[in-house]
Design a protein around this nucleic acid. Structure first.
Lengths: 164, 164
DNA sequence: GCAATTTATGCAACACTATATCATTGCAAT
DNA sequence: ATTGCAATGATATAGTGTTGCATAAATTGC
């Protein structure tokens, strides 16, 4: 058997989908079947997945799926703060931290593994604030809801050192 | 006239190209004409530039330029630590900090503006080390030579607030 | 209800980003 | 000269993301 990463139980997924649906309603938007299915796939995977893989998987659930179908759903889910885009690998991942539905942006820190696309969303107000202050100090102004840090996850470190 | 960003004087560019050439020689590699021209274009722009724009510009200097020509040069320049790839915008930028030719990796912090592709490479051992320690603490291991932080540069902040 | 409006989806074509593959050239070291 | 190697030339193709417009579904206002 090939190495796998943990996947959430399907009951958890259902709970989180329901939570997402409520959240959208509160925002005056709709978690339509397509959007829900895309989010469901991302939750099932539990790590970063490429758009065209989602297209393929969606075709099973929804025969008429084409790239725009998926990209539009992803755009919506990102706007709702339910999904992150991983710039380093052109992948998408479901937000792990179910954000408190406040309007203000968080600038959380994302540890993203370039090898397996695992993503750890580590909540650390201390570090986040320090970094935000540092950016501001430099005359820049943080943009986007999170900062993506490229780093090998524990599992991939083991594999890398075994291979080396 | 449209808004512009500062460009380094061509004398500076020549000096930095010469510096880059020495550095390559020390590493046992060669800064060939093509590689030198690509680096020169990046230095001239002074901010992130897309690969296909470089292809177009290179065609003027070197008629037989095709995408692989440029991507190979960029790959080399990245390996030499002379160029960064900006994941957030699929762009490439010349390293501003002429790195001390040590072997060890730096994990510097890059402030990259998503609007104009300006990049500030802010050297701050304090912050870099704090972040590196934090990543290690989380069980991850930094990968890549820098951390890319998406943030509006001062100029684009003004434009954004004027537009708003 | 029902029309009007907005929002979401279907579908085709296209644009942009990057890599694979194989042939060729130039130069250096047997 | 021949082999070995690094770099380049050239073509094709893979991978990623968008635009535009037509249709359908949901929401709003009456």
């Amino acid at each position: 058997m090939t190495h796998t990463h943990p996947q959430p139980a399907s009951t958890d997924i259902e709970a989180r989908l329901a939570h997402a649906e409520n959240r959208c309603r509160e925002h005056g938007s709709r978690l339509t079947p397509i959007r829900r299915q895309v989010l469901g796939l991302l939750l099932k995977h539990g790590h970063g997945v490429k758009a065209y893989q989602l297209v393929d998987e969606m075709k099973s659930l929804h025969a008429s799926t084409t790239p725009p179908t998926v990209y539009r759903a992803l755009e919506f889910l990102q706007a709702e703060g339910l999904v992150h885009r991983l710039d380093m690998s052109n992948a998408f991942v479901a937000c792990s931290a179910q954000d408190d539905a406040h309007g203000h942006v968080h600038h959380g820190l994302l540890l993203a593994c370039p090898r397996c696309n695992a993503v750890a969303e580590v909540p650390d107000e201390q570090m986040s604030h320090a970094l935000a202050a540092w950016v501001h100090q430099a005359g820049y102004r943080l943009e986007g809801e999170s900062i993506e840090i490229k780093a090998l996850c524990p599992a991939c470190q083991k594999i890398a050192s075994a291979t080396a």
